[in-house]
Design a protein around this nucleic acid. Structure first.
Length: 910
RNA sequence: ACCCAAGUGGCGAAAUCAUGGUAUACGCGUUGGACUCAAAAUCCAAUGACUUUCUAUGUCAUGCGGGUUCGAAUCCCGCCUUGGGUACCA
């Protein structure tokens, strides 16, 4: 009997939906919270790369459920964002309707592959019901300061009270405010002055910072939209421009973000990535005198190399560069790297050091100074070759392979690096040439966006002073603006005619009414995407709550995320922000967990071939790729991505299909190569822009969702990127059919009711043990191998006994839920297989009384030998020495040593 | 430029961490066979490379070059290539 996946899968899809099988309620069972990283609902819909994480987490969720946990496995949409905004500008559609359509598309596609998401908990960041709380949280961040003494964020009113009492003398706050004031002064200050000071303490504050401004496009651009200093769209120049923007004092949490790793289970590489992003380090800054100019401060990363400094480069933005530049005003070479006529004095030797100005170095540090140590720094060395009068001093010498000692370094000579560093630091500090500081690479996160499609920031401005909208008036809803493309440096919301706050009536009114007495302008910037995505995992626990973002009861039950699965591209930004946000909410007492995620795994990407054809620039002529360098043609070519479905046999193109697909090129000319038209193929990330997307529906339509699910898992380890090959899916198709056929005899469903043999039980328990272990390690690909081996053996020994097969189908159900549900039903079970338990393995069936030893000669395998598991090493030794095979190989050579590693190997050295 | 990861047959990969111990499990593909008038489907067998007439307890293979070890795909050092991130793509 043929397995009719279309009918069967459709049947169970409906059953699950109708009976709300995936709906989760809090109960007395132990909880397990699985989370997929927030998807962005793009217009092109889901592709098989997205599915990878969903399938993996679904297998894990179904498995945990079958192990007795109450599993929360929710989904929602990070639906604010740039692509929707741009698509809306292009097409004239409203971003609201685009988002609605895209979310619907995603839901259908995800349901199709049988993911057990609880859709009743769906949320969407662009929904006012959700962003009401994002806005609320922003106001709370605004109304908080960081107490360094207790290491937590607190209400700003506590700080104000303290200022009233003691000024800022006694408080130990995380602040950018450097001056001191007492309570008298504070009380005397006016409203404006007080708020200006408070801005240095608030966790959300306004500050001018740089943006990428593109004048021609009339907008701020993301780095992603820029290529080589020009806009990707149109290729227009970009200028850095300072704008007043909201910042979040994330740096206050640097130490806790580092410390928190103790409680997160994730790969070391993920930890390293985040640690490097935070970039905490102890550094020494030194003061250097520039003759006739003044002092500069510079960071010296390796103070033990101080005697190797032979030049200094200043960034063009350095205040001293600007002074120096005045002298060079009339010279042409001020723009790139050039040598000035100024000299610095070496802080210890007082030797003259030449000063350069330029951008050769990636000067990212605040000091904007680069200390050139060409003897031991690669880039400095390259730079010194450019200006060949730079002196190169080697200050290190290899003592042996590991240790380096200082040379040409005055009093440091002869010390190894570590010792030399200690000594020089001590001297620098004593002589007050240097200061020890803790430095962080991370800076406070910029929170303002000049876009339309984001959460409005709930702030209005009274004489330029930011005041939060009263929280009982939240949310302030994003106004509908038909044409929000500003083409000016004003933010999109500036175009809204109704975007002013009436303090008397407590509502949003027309901007015409602004009188700056009781009607004030509202902030026109919107929030960044990371706002909504920094706390969504909390909302899933209590998505329908209208009174608060999360109730105590629900939080007590679900606590935090047990397993977080998502792409490694979010390893830094999103994870840092979400962890910060969570810690903030905890500090203020609204939640209890210090860390939001207990365990994080990163899935790899799926790569696929893309097809690129050669087109003659500006003409409807296509040239087969192999003719690219053919001298007869004097065309200039442009490369064009075409849909991968137009290829037949690797890089051959079906021209008729091509013309059909692109009606624009119906009358185009094709220059062939040996009668065929070839393209270039490239293996790269699956993406809409590269037209190499494979949609899950195309696969599940042809093979069924079970086959699709299992094949995606079978491609390779979840954490690695892997390429898609549509041919190999056949192996899984055959395997699913084998499962089906083992439950059938002569075309009818049949299982044998006899008691299994010990050998059969042993096979089953071995499988249970392996699957148990491998699922916990997320090795889903090798689980499938084990299922295959198991089924192959059952077929070989002709076992179709109920007691074995029933357990097997439970084990495979998380991987292939549809066929399992059908077989479970045919086995006579009334309830869904989702409600069954996967048994634990019984170790009594696993015992083996023989142990296989590998016998090696000088580390090379010769043969294997079985020994009784009870044998002592001594007994094995005697046995081996008298083994004729060994005597034969040893022949007349003398045995030097015998190494026996219990339960593993025997190595004979001769 | 910096940070993080990956590199194993014709191909996807296993063994890689906790714990160094039979390299290529499982699958695809290919080849041969069975069934069939034939094809598809299915089933069975072989399949890293090399060498020799046969045999084998033979030789060589885990991106490249070294090292540690009785023993390295696995650990250490130095490279090469590819992918991801670098703060307004998500």
């Amino acid at each position: 009997m043929e397995y009719n996946f279309r009918e069967i899968e459709e049947k169970w899809r409906k059953y699950w939906k109708k009976n709300n099988i995936f709906r989760i309620k809090e109960n007395k069972k132990k909880k397990y919270y699985i989370l997929n990283m927030f998807p962005y609902p793009s217009g092109s819909g889901l592709h098989i790369g997205h599915c990878l994480g969903y399938i993996a987490s679904d297998i894990y969720a179904r498995y945990k459920r079958a192990k007795g946990y109450n599993v929360l496995n929710p989904i929602g949409f990070d639906s604010f964002g740039l692509p929707t905004e741009q698509y809306a500008i292009q097409t004239g559609k409203s971003p609201h309707s685009i988002t609605y359509e895209n979310e619907k598309k995603y839901k259908n596609q995800i349901e199709d592959i049988g993911i057990s998401f609880d859709w009743s908990r769906k949320l969407s960041t662009s929904n006012p019901i959700y962003y009401r709380w994002t806005q609320w949280m922003f106001i709370q961040i605004f109304n908080s300061w960081y107490d360094k003494k207790e290491n937590k964020a607190k209400d700003i009113n506590i700080l104000i009270k303290e200022f009233n009492k003691n000024g800022n003398y006694k408080i130990n706050a995380y602040t950018s405010y450097k001056r001191k004031f007492n309570s008298k002064k504070w009380i005397y200050y006016n409203f404006l002055k007080k708020e200006t000071i408070l801005q240095h303490y608030r966790l959300a504050y306004l500050k001018r910072s740089l943006v990428n401004w593109c004048n021609e496009l009339g907008t701020v651009l993301a780095n992603d939209e820029i290529n080589n200093g020009k806009s990707k769209r149109g290729g227009y120049p970009i200028n850095k421009k300072k704008m007043l923007q909201w910042h979040i004092r994330t740096t206050a949490y640097s130490n806790r973000l580092i410390k928190g790793f103790d409680d997160i289970k994730c790969s070391n590489s993920l930890k390293k990535l985040q640690l490097n992003w935070i970039g905490k380090s102890k550094v020494i800054s030194i003061l250097i005198n520039i003759i006739n100019i003044g002092k500069i401060e510079a960071i010296i990363l390796y103070p033990e190399l101080i005697f190797g400094i032979t030049f200094i480069t200043l960034s063009k933005n350095h205040s001293i560069s600007k002074k120096i530049n005045n002298f060079y005003k009339n010279q042409d070479n001020c723009t790139s790297n050039f040598l000035t006529k100024y000299y610095a004095l070496h802080p210890i030797t007082n030797k003259k050091i030449p000063i350069f100005i330029g951008d050769f170095f990636f000067i990212k540090n605040k000091r904007k100074v680069y200390l050139g140590i060409p003897g031991h720094d690669k880039i400095s060395k390259i730079f010194s070759y450019k200006f060949n009068n730079i002196e190169i001093i080697n200050v290190l010498k290899h003592k042996n392979e590991k240790d380096e000692i200082c040379i040409n370094s005055n009093f440091l000579n002869g010390f190894n690096r570590i010792e030399a560093r200690k000594r020089i630091i001590k001297i620098l500090l004593e002589k007050k040439i240097g200061k020890s500081e803790t430095s962080y690479k991370m800076h406070d996160a910029i929170f303002s966006r000049q876009r339309y499609w984001g959460e409005p920031i709930p702030i209005y401005f009274k004489q330029g002073i930011p005041i939060p909208i009263p929280i009982n008036k939240l949310p302030i809803v994003l106004p509908i603006i038909k044409n929000f493309y500003t083409k000016s440096e004003k933010s999109a919301l500036y175009k809204s005619k109704k975007w002013a706050w009436n303090e008397k009536k407590l509502k949003i009114v027309s901007t015409n009414l602004i009188n700056n007495k009781y009607i004030f302008p509202i902030e026109t910037n919107t929030m960044p995407c990371w706002a909504g995505s920094s706390w969504y995992f909390l909302r899933y626990m209590d998505v329908k709550n209208n009174n608060f973002f999360l109730s105590k009861e629900k939080e007590d039950y679900w606590k935090n995320v047990d397993l977080y699965i998502g792409g490694s591209e979010h390893a830094t930004g999103h994870l840092i922000y979400a962890r910060f946000w969570n810690k903030f909410l905890k500090d203020r007492g609204w939640i209890k967990s210090e860390e939001p995620f207990k365990k994080i795994i990163n899935q790899g990407m799926i790569l696929h071939h893309s097809a690129i054809v050669l087109k003659v620039t500006g003409k409807k002529i296509f040239v087969s790729y192999g003719l690219k360098n053919y001298k007869k043609y004097k065309f200039s070519f442009q490369e064009m991505y075409i849909d991968i479905s137009l290829t037949i046999e690797k890089n051959k193109i079906d021209i008729n299909k091509f013309k059909e697909f692109y009606p624009l090129f119906n009358d185009a000319t094709f220059l062939l190569e040996k009668g065929f038209f070839f393209c270039k193929r490239k293996l790269e990330k699956m993406s809409k822009s590269k037209y190499n997307i494979i949609k899950p529906y195309d696969i599940s339509k042809k093979y069924g969702s079970d086959v699709f699910r299992m094949y995606e898992m079978f491609l390779g380890p979840i954490t690695q990127s892997k390429s898609w090959d549509g041919y190999k899916i056949n192996g899984i198709k055959i395997f699913i059919r084998k499962i089906w056929s083992i439950f059938h005899e002569n075309g009818k469903f049949y299982v044998n009711e006899d008691k299994p043999t010990i050998e059969e039980f042993r096979l089953l328990n071995n499988l249970i043990k392996k699957i148990d272990e491998k699922i916990e390690l997320y090795h889903f690909n090798t689980c499938i191998s084990d299922f295959m081996i198991f089924i192959k053996k059952l077929i070989k020994i002709k076992c179709n006994k109920r007691k074995i097969l029933e357990q097997f189908i439970k084990l495979i159900a998380p991987f292939a839920p549809y066929i399992s549900e059908e077989i479970w039903n045919k086995l006579g079970k009334k309830k869904s297989i989702m409600y069954t338990f996967i048994p634990n393995f019984k170790s009594k069936f696993l015992l083996d009384n023989k142990i296989k030893y590998i016998v090696m000669f000088n580390g090379k395998l010769k043969f294997t030998e079985n020994f009784d598991s009870k044998f002592t090493i001594e007994k094995i030794k005697n046995n081996i020495l008298n083994n004729p095979k060994i005597k034969n190989i040893l022949n007349k050579k003398k045995l030097k040593k015998l190494i026996i590693i219990p339960k593993k190997i025997i190595n004979i050295l001769y």
